[in-house]
Design a binder for these strands. Structure first.
Length: 484
DNA sequence: TGAAATGTTGGGGCG
DNA sequence: ACGCCCCAACATTTC
């Protein structure tokens, strides 16, 4: 809880600069600001560098905007509001300091290379206080004996788990008592957030901290305890068996530490081994998120190229990339997943691995093309996790899949979407294809194609490539040693 | 957090 | 009753 400070209207205010921590609950930067001053100004800055980046996404921006509206509504209950500034952060913050007399800026640390350069630059000129991290355990706090970072997940996980102990104690599910100490001085000129009613709201993911909290509860405490099927069903895109929390974690609408505490308590309270197994599996996913935040922190160069110096002979055919990105490869599970991405801004994790394998191995297209496409569409698009996932699949990353690990889109489909429900949900042209053929519709005899209203080459594409053949080509194109 | 090729085993059909 | 073949099921190796 916050120490009660005597009210002193003359005290210089502190700025709470919100970046990827769009929430009031369990927010270390906000707490630090509240501890520093009895007047705290909540600010978000629309940075043109980020908004105009080739990795930006309209959907993600819309989700963020919604989350900021939601935060603003929450702040109004404390007689405050969110101040939104537009422009270069140094100018925006300098101007705000000049207008308000603020003497400190508190912000959660951000480990992406752009953010670190920006913050370092700002720290030379402004009273910046960088607090905590979006990771559960901050980068730099988990190192090997010799002081170098882990680059293999399993030993990282072991150490990570051993450090979780003291995190639960200080956790709270409720916002702190603000005592009217959040304030937005009258007369300050910010910009208006884009009006959400001008957008179609994403029905799959309503933005905001309240919604994140509701989802966390639904995932872990629903009457049918969905978390307890997590270990068994999380790879099934046809079932709603994952947490769907990634967009909220991305913007800190949900604190990762809050998720951790809930995961640990689910582990503790598990009544059956399989329940414990589910909690443990989810815990591992949270650890993967930390792992890749740490990797990006220690090896920022992964954003521009292979972590491992593999020399792969990419083909990089732009038309094939277009076919893949629009979900027209002729492999139903690949196409269903790509269309899910475009229309909802989210994709099931198993499907992410499959479509990534298909792009890099079957089509031999540089993982960076896929990485960019994902960033342009994912609500949860985050440089660390997205890059880690792509490099893992491409076999170029830390702890990467071996070069010969190539997903078979037909087998994956039969295994993880057995009835084809997920496929039919996103590919209406396959609606009436019998389950027997749903994973490989090109095998339908002509009369079945007609009867199913799905003529291959007319209603649904001929496969862009023969997988068995493409697999052999990928094995040949991938160098078998790191020298290439 | 893979898939395919190859090897092994055991049951059933059959002469 | 026996050997042989086939093949499914499983295990191991290889890419």
């Amino acid at each position: 809880m916050i120490p009660n400070k005597p009210t002193n209207p003359g005290e210089p205010p502190a700025i709470w600069w919100i970046r990827r921590d769009v929430r009031l609950v369990e927010n270390p930067a906000l707490m630090a600001a509240l501890a520093a001053s009895n007047r705290v100004i909540p600010v978000f800055i629309l940075d043109p560098v980020l908004i105009n980046s080739p990795y930006a996404s309209k959907q993600r921006f819309r989700f963020l905007t919604g989350g900021l509206h939601a935060l603003d509504s929450q702040l109004r209950r404390y007689d405050s509001s969110l101040l939104v500034l537009q422009g270069e952060p140094l100018q925006a913050l300098s101007g705000l300091i000049a207008e308000t007399g603020a003497n400190a800026i508190f912000a959660e640390r951000d480990h992406s290379p752009y953010a670190r350069r920006r913050d370092q630059h700002l720290s030379l000129r402004l009273p910046m206080h960088l607090i905590s991290s979006p990771a559960i355990i901050s980068p730099g706090e988990i190192l090997k004996e010799d002081g170098t970072p882990y680059t293999v997940f399993t030993p990282f996980l072991k150490v990570w788990k051993s450090r979780l102990g003291d995190l639960s104690a200080s956790s709270s599910a409720e916002p702190p008592a603000f005592d009217h100490r959040l304030s937005t001085p009258r007369g300050l000129t910010g910009v208006k957030l884009p009006d959400l009613s001008a957008f179609s709201v994403n029905q799959q993911f309503l933005p905001g901290e309240i919604e994140a909290k509701r989802r966390l509860r639904a995932f872990t405490q629903g009457y049918d305890a969905p978390l307890y099927g997590y270990a068994q069903y999380r790879n099934r895109p046809d079932l709603n068996a994952t947490s769907f929390l990634s967009p909220y974690l991305r913007f800190g609408m949900l604190s990762a530490r809050r998720a951790l505490v809930v995961a640990l308590s689910a582990l503790e309270q598990a009544a059956h081994p399989e329940d414990a197994n589910s909690a443990e599996t989810w815990l591992n996913e949270l650890a993967w998120r930390d792992f890749y935040i740490h990797i990006l922190h220690h090896f920022p160069r992964v954003l521009t190229g292979n972590f491992r110096p593999l020399n792969i002979r990419w083909r990089n055919d732009p038309e094939e990339f277009e076919t893949w990105s629009q979900g027209r490869t002729g492999y139903p599970l690949v196409d269903a997943a790509m269309r899910q991405l475009i229309s909802t801004g989210w994709m099931h994790n198993r499907a992410r691995m499959l479509v990534a394998s298909f792009l890099t191995k079957d089509l031999l297209i540089d993982w960076r093309w896929g990485e960019r496409w994902f960033m342009q569409h994912l609500l949860d698009g985050d440089p660390a996790a997205n890059n880690g996932g792509w490099q893992w699949t491409a076999g170029t990353g830390t702890d990467a899949a071996p070069y010969f690990r190539i997903f078979n889109p037909i087998i994956q489909s039969a295994r993880f979407d057995p009835q084809g429900d997920f496929i039919r949900c996103w590919l209406p042209e396959l609606e009436r294809v019998p389950t027997k053929f749903i994973h490989a519709p090109w095998e339908m005899p002509p009369d079945v194609q007609v009867h199913s209203a799905c003529r291959i080459g007319i209603d649904y594409p001929v496969p862009i490539i023969d997988h068995a053949w493409a697999r052999q080509r990928a094995l040949a194109a991938y160098p078998k040693s790191e020298r290439g």
